[in-house]
Design a protein around this nucleic acid. Structure first.
Lengths: 189, 189
DNA sequence: CCACTACTGAAACAGTCGTTTCAGTGGCAG
DNA sequence: CTGCCACTGAAACGACTGTTTCAGTAGTGG
């Protein structure tokens, strides 16, 4: 009998939220139960009981991180008029560049990288899914093939600038690059 | 007395090369000495002797990976005429999109992500350094401020498209996006 | 009161980790 | 032959890993 994870409960969600905040500070790669349990005021015994296994915990944390990402996705969806890819990109970049979101984005990149080198385990499919989510959003604003390519390119600009920003912390330089792109795609008018 | 790592020797470089190939298959995050030693036909004792510590080994592997990156950087430097950023980007993308380089690039992304969440340890500075290397190259081809921004943007396009490619494996779609960008930056002429 | 569910503490299990200790190899210079 | 040097094997050390066993506790509904 594989120990199943418990259905959502008050205690489970409280501990998940605290564990998520702990993961934002310490990263997911080196997470281990005993220090985590001590930090969130619990015990390894309880974490295993509520989440079934460490993999179950990681899956739950990844899902929690995806909830933050979905929030950003919705914000982009409601930005500007329908069909206005530029507005969606601009809004999303503002969100990405906000210093408060940096720990979450580092966590996101970690999960992305890990899911590439470990097709099995709780990380599986994270990268593929996150790409698909964003492309769906951006492509839904468009019609033809050329516009689909624009969505792929726009997403690449955001993600590449984000990589740069996370490494250097240089908001001004990376924002200038994103805006240079938007100026070209919107037309110089 | 901290156990120092030995100077380069025939045996050291041979084992480093084998360990590098092992890391390309299994990733760096979960690397541990005993399985690695078994795979490369050695023992933990010898790896510690030659590299001083596990951190020393990782530093050596990271440096080895950087050697591959430097090769790509030189290829970009020699592409097209001086001042032709587009040619450098195009050449680099061909290199990035080659299936043979994929394991190395996944490894690169792993190191990048890890160096963001762990400022100390052997990973330190990897992300910042790799960004700086490429920006130096691309910016050296240019003069004014606008061109510097173009370099940042061009690099972002490559890295963003690479993230997409590594997750989805879709060479055609990501290459189309990169070329759409190059067409705009070179001008429609 | 009683049974039931949800949760918890303490301790132990078997395994892996990086590293160290001790004791050697084989080869090559003097 | 002697001494030095690069390298190696076997075994152990203590710390840490996820997980399990056993034994509870608090609260709630019948």
């Amino acid at each position: 009998m594989t120990p199943d994870e418990r259905p959502p409960s008050a205690r489970r969600e409280e501990l998940l939220e605290r564990a998520y905040r702990y993961a934002l500070e310490h990263g997911l790669s080196e997470l281990s139960l005993r220090p985590l349990a001590a930090a969130v005021g619990s015990s390894p015994r309880v974490l295993l009981f509520l989440f079934g296994s460490k993999d179950g915990l990681i899956r739950a944390l990844l899902a929690r991180a995806r909830a933050d990402e979905t929030a950003a996705l919705d914000r982009a969806r409601n930005a500007g008029e329908a069909g206005d890819v530029g507005a969606a990109l601009r809004t999303t970049w503002e969100w990405l560049a906000a210093p408060a979101h940096r720990p979450m984005l580092v966590l996101w990149l970690q999960a992305y990288a890990r899911s590439l080198s470990e097709p099995d385990g709780p990380w599986a499919g994270f990268a593929r899914q996150t790409v698909a989510d964003w492309l769906d959003l951006l492509a839904a604003r468009t019609g033809g093939d050329r516009a689909a390519t624009d969505a792929v390119l726009g997403l690449a600009v955001l993600r590449g600038a984000l990589l740069d920003l996370l490494a250097t912390g240089d908001v001004a330089r990376t924002t200038a690059a994103v805006e240079a792109y938007l100026r070209r795609v919107d037309g110089p008018s």
